[in-house]
């Protein structure tokens, strides 16, 4: 077990290092002198020179990378040009919104996608199954921002039940009730992802139900419900669990759009605004953090998979 964890962690670290090189190179791949691009047309040569020095752009690339990576390891991701604040502060400001949004979305995805997928699989071939599967395919094909705009139109603009934009922190006035600001965004974000998990759950239930050991379980004479719960569901969920890391990454990615639709002060919107502001250190920092998060999540999924499925070999 320990060997497995060490090996997987090593692989994830290697990927992280390679990804960090790409992220570092990003600023140098943009056409033009990075410092001048960031400061815009109005900048004086002195300002450009000052920024060059501050960012260490005069050093050879390899040295710059080690400076940058070394700082990143110590938790220093550079300074935002636009805010003139450490990038970590900018990220931290958006973290609460993004983490809560992704978590609430994940709850919808699991609460809706898994049970409905199980129901569809248990009623395989029925009208209910065909309807649910078709609906899931349709929902998986709808852009999240379109769902978001419709939710705003109906539940915020017409019915006035829920706020349409912004999110005050749960630590500010209003407390936990402020979570209502995240209901519509999380539903929009959950739509295609719950649909995908539904389809995955259904497909893996059907795959598992064809396995020989399910026939063995039936032969024992236990009830159909017990066959489903003890033998099909548990094995089918292994596949679903392994997709959670993937789904969470998709959430982070799609949250960029959702946060823009609902004007949420999250990391995703920060990325979009930083692109428009040419605030490259922030973009670099956010992407690095998200890639780290993604790799950690996948690692955790891999390890938990190892706990759930004794077959996975100890490499």
């Amino acid at each position: 077990m320990l060997g497995f964890i060490v090996k997987r962690t090593g692989a994830a670290l290697a990927t992280l290092v390679a990804a960090s090189v790409l992220i570092f190179m990003f600023i140098h791949l943009i056409p033009g002198e990075p410092a001048a691009v960031m400061l815009g047309d109005a900048a004086t040569p002195e300002q450009v020179a000052a920024l060059r020095t501050r960012l260490g752009l005069d050093e050879p690339l390899i040295i710059q990378y080690f400076y940058w990576a070394g700082n990143a390891l110590q938790g220093d991701l550079g300074r935002s040009i636009f805010f003139d604040e450490p990038v970590t502060t900018v990220i931290a400001d958006g973290a609460e919104t993004s983490i809560l949004l992704a978590s609430i979305t994940m709850i919808w995805v699991v609460l809706i996608g898994v049970p409905v997928g199980v129901i569809a699989a248990m009623r395989r071939g029925s009208w209910l199954d065909q309807g649910l599967s078709g609906l899931a395919m349709l929902l998986a094909s709808i852009p999240t921002f379109w769902v978001g705009l419709y939710l705003i139109l109906v539940f915020a603009a017409q019915l006035g039940w829920l706020p349409s934009s912004g999110y005050p922190s749960i630590f500010d006035e209003g407390g936990l009730a402020n979570l209502r600001y995240l209901i519509l965004p999380s539903l929009a974000l959950a739509t295609p992802n719950a649909a995908l998990i539904l389809r995955l759950t259904r497909a893996s239930m059907l795959d598992v139900s064809k396995e020989d050991y399910v026939r063995t379980a039936r032969a024992k004479g236990i009830s159909p419900r017990q066959v489903t719960v003890r033998h099909i569901l548990r094995n089918a969920l292994l596949v679903v669990v392994s997709a959670f890391g993937f789904t969470f990454a998709a959430l982070i990615s799609e949250a960029v759009v959702t946060e823009t639709v609902f004007a949420l002060p999250g990391i995703g919107r920060t990325v979009v605004q930083s692109i428009l502001r040419r605030d490259y250190p922030v973009i670099q920092g956010v992407i690095l953090v998200i890639v780290c998060l993604y790799l950690v999540l996948n690692l955790l999924v891999d390890i938990s998979y190892r706990f759930l499925d004794p077959r996975v070999e100890l490499e």
Partner: peptide, 12 residues
């Protein structure tokens, strides 16, 4: 059954 390899639930 024929296949003792696959006839037992692998995760129980």
């Amino acid at each position: 059954f024929q296949e003792p390899m696959t006839s037992l639930n692998p995760v129980r």
